[in-house]
Design a protein around this nucleic acid. Structure first.
Lengths: 170, 170
DNA sequence: CCATTTGGTCTGGTCATCGAACTCAGGCAC
DNA sequence: GTGCCTGAGTTCGATGACCAGACCAAATGG
């Protein structure tokens, strides 16, 4: 993390995690990456984040080995293997937010591809395993509010799609 | 969250969560609360956080219903039922930090009380359930560095203890 | 080859965070 | 009661982060 965001003298793995993903916007950028967002302008359109901050965050995530940057001209940012391990934490935090704000009316629904629905604890209700992100399909749930955002990225994300699958905008 | 930390126009439960627990220090305060820390000065001693920020964070967490404040003179801050639901997310983030920094040498070990050790995914290796925080015992692991901190709270936390059990310092 | 899009950097102002100093109330020794 | 200590904050000035908007260069599209 840049200045002012280290928790140096904490002997704690949570603090180590937060040094990498604890800054404002960072977890939302990674969530978008799980949902298939790959390009600078798509992150920006979807998150309403200042370009300067987005640029800083992407650079930091690449430096920390969570994103890989490929292509010189218009680069693509993709999650690294290391970043995939964050999925359980991201999912758990999201589920907590659903419970807290609109219990019973989730904004998104998750399926274990070719198997069954996922429960709130992340297990597939059919086979009882915690599916890897590549085997998860997302689609809007009853609590989704399609009037809230109309940018092309949000529209594209409303189609059911697998996690990690690059998003086609337009 | 105070100014500058809302993600207003995001139709996303993760953003809703981060509005409550996404600020600097907030998750570390909650982690300490799970470990049994209850008092202002103990949080401060353990986290090396400025009193002004700690005061602001505790106030916000009480207002958001994650902490309850009891006792007028020297108040105690305890996790509410709502906050207990954060345990899976906190645990997952912590495990990711362990994997990333010192794989195979965890700083802390978790046990399902009266049952068995907990695996990296949070399940008890014996009974295969995800134990509630009150049924979890923490103790230092091989990756712990006892030389890093010597404040009384850190010392007390090195004793094996159950989550949520109020910490006795000194 | 010219216009537009993409992926940025720069800037000035606002907001958050920091450490240090200060306040204020309760507990305790004497 | 007087003085002292500790716990739980609040206040303050300086520093650093964040934001919106202007600007810019390289890549792409026609």
């Amino acid at each position: 993390m840049p200045l002012g965001t280290d928790y140096a003298r904490q002997d704690c793995s949570l603090a180590r995690s937060l040094e990498v993903v604890g800054e404002r916007w960072t977890l939302l950028i990674l969530r978008d990456a799980f949902f298939g967002v790959r390009r600078f302008s798509d992150f920006q359109a979807h998150l309403d984040i200042s370009k300067a901050v987005l640029s800083t965050r992407l650079e930091a995530l690449v430096a920390d080995g969570l994103l890989s940057r490929t292509g010189e001209g218009h680069p693509e940012y993709a999650l690294t293997h290391e970043a995939l391990g964050l999925w359980p934490a991201l999912f758990a935090l999201g589920q907590w937010g659903e419970q807290r704000t609109t219990p019973g009316r989730p904004r998104r629904l998750y399926r274990h591809v070719g198997c069954g629905e996922m429960a709130g604890d992340g297990r597939c209700t059919t086979c009882d395993v915690f599916p890897a992100p590549a085997a998860v399909e997302v689609r809007p749930g009853p609590g989704a509010d399609p009037t809230l955002r109309s940018d092309p990225v949000s529209v594209a994300l409303r189609e059911p799609h697998r996690l990690l699958e690059p998003l086609l905008v337009r």
